[in-house]
Structures are given as structure tokens and as C-alpha cells.
Design a protein around this nucleic acid. Structure first.
Lengths: 93, 93
DNA sequence: TGATTATATAGCTAAATGGCTAAACATTGA
DNA sequence: TCAATGTTTAGCCATTTAGCTATATAATCA
């Protein structure tokens, strides 16, 4: 499993960005407006998510629209379930 | 959701420790023997996992035995599924 | 072309992280 | 009580991270 997605998901701001994007694609500015951080700070977070392929961007005029890459998230979740999920662990007690 | 578990899970060494412990409880030394890191390094990783309540320790003579807290892991996975899992996201296209 | 708007990048700082070695601590057993 | 063993803690260092401000880039429009 790609290391990047773990780092991407380990930050609360980035997780909140993902939750925002679950509601549909948004521009960088729209995303930034939900936070009290400076705009470049959010831009960098978006870049981390992009490098992990958790989001995808697309320019639309002067705007840049970000959307979730749900496949990557779901693959990650499936991997987590497989590796850390409730498998039978027959210990003595 | 507790921030600690995200940080705990974001490191590959710690994830490998968890996978080792899925196989059953192990002493700190036994865990450390699976890595090429110095033993105190692993001890510190174990401490991170302990602080996130992902593992639990128990002294047994001079040994300290670590075991998984599977409940915490499963709660975390459930939370992830709920927040990032495949909910219906009816976008136009 | 120049102004405006949206966004990213550069460059900085403080704090967190992960590695190491050396030293401390806890338990056991002679 | 002392030595041995298993483990943690302390202290150090290099790297990464997340924040900021200032600046650069890209697209649009007059």
C-alpha cells in the first residue's frame, strides 16, 4: 500500500477537506473558505492529497476544481480492513 | 475520532508491529527482533501505539508483553468506513 | 497590454518525528 | 546486596511537517 495515503489521511485538516469533497467537487477557494487557515496553507494540503491521488484537480478558467478519487480511498479502506480488520485470531484465552 | 490513532497508523514500522501482534502477544524484545532498528527505537514506537491505545502492555517478570487492543482498531476502521467509505454520492456525472 | 482574480510556489520558522547511543530502571536469582 | 537481563527514558541530531507572508503564475476581460 502506498505510504502517501497514510500521511495524507493523518492530518485532520486534510480529512476535513475530504469530507467536504464527499459532498461534491469544489474549487480550491471554496475549500479554503471552510477553514481559518491561510489560503496557501490549504493549497499545500490539497497538494498532499493530490500527490497521494486521493483527489484530482482540473482547471476551469481561473478556478481549479478538486474532486475526490473515491477509488483510491476505497482501495485504502479495503487494504486496511484486510490487514487490520477483524480476522480470526485464535489465541488460547 | 482520536487523533492519536491516525498518527500511530501512519508509520510503516508501527503498522508492521501491529501485523506481528495480530499473530498473538509478544514481548518488546521479540517485537524488536523483527526489525533492523535499535531496540529503543522500537520501544518508542510501542509507546506511540500504547498512547493511542492500539496496544496494551503487561509486565511479566522482566519481560513486558504487548498485545493488540483489537477493539480500538475495529472502532477506528468502522469510523473510517463511515466517514470515507462508499456512501452514495449522487453527482450529476 | 494591463488589471483583476484564483491559485500555486518560494522561503522562512517552530514544532514534531524517527533514528541513534548512553544511561536509568525493574525484576530475578545467586 | 550485586550482577545479569529486558526494557524504558534521556538527550542528541537530521528530516519532515504545517503554518505563515510575499511573490509568482494562469486565465480572463477591458
Amino acid at each position: 500500500m502506498n505510504e502517501g495515503i497514510f500521511k495524507a489521511m493523518s492530518d485532520p485538516t486534510r480529512r476535513k477537506i475530504i469530507e467536504l469533497l464527499k459532498d461534491g467537487p469544489k474549487t480550491a477557494g471554496e475549500i479554503a473558505s471552510h477553514f481559518s487557515h491561510a489560503q496557501p496553507t490549504i493549497s499545500r494540503h490539497l497538494n498532499v492529497l493530490k500527490n497521494a491521488h486521493v483527489v484530482v484537480d482540473q482547471r476551469e478558467g481561473t478556478f481549479i476544481i478538486y474532486r475526490l478519487n473515491t477509488t483510491v480511498l476505497q482501495d485504502w479502506l479495503a487494504w486496511l480492513m484486510k490487514h487490520f480488520g477483524g480476522e480470526n485470531n485464535d489465541e488460547k484465552e
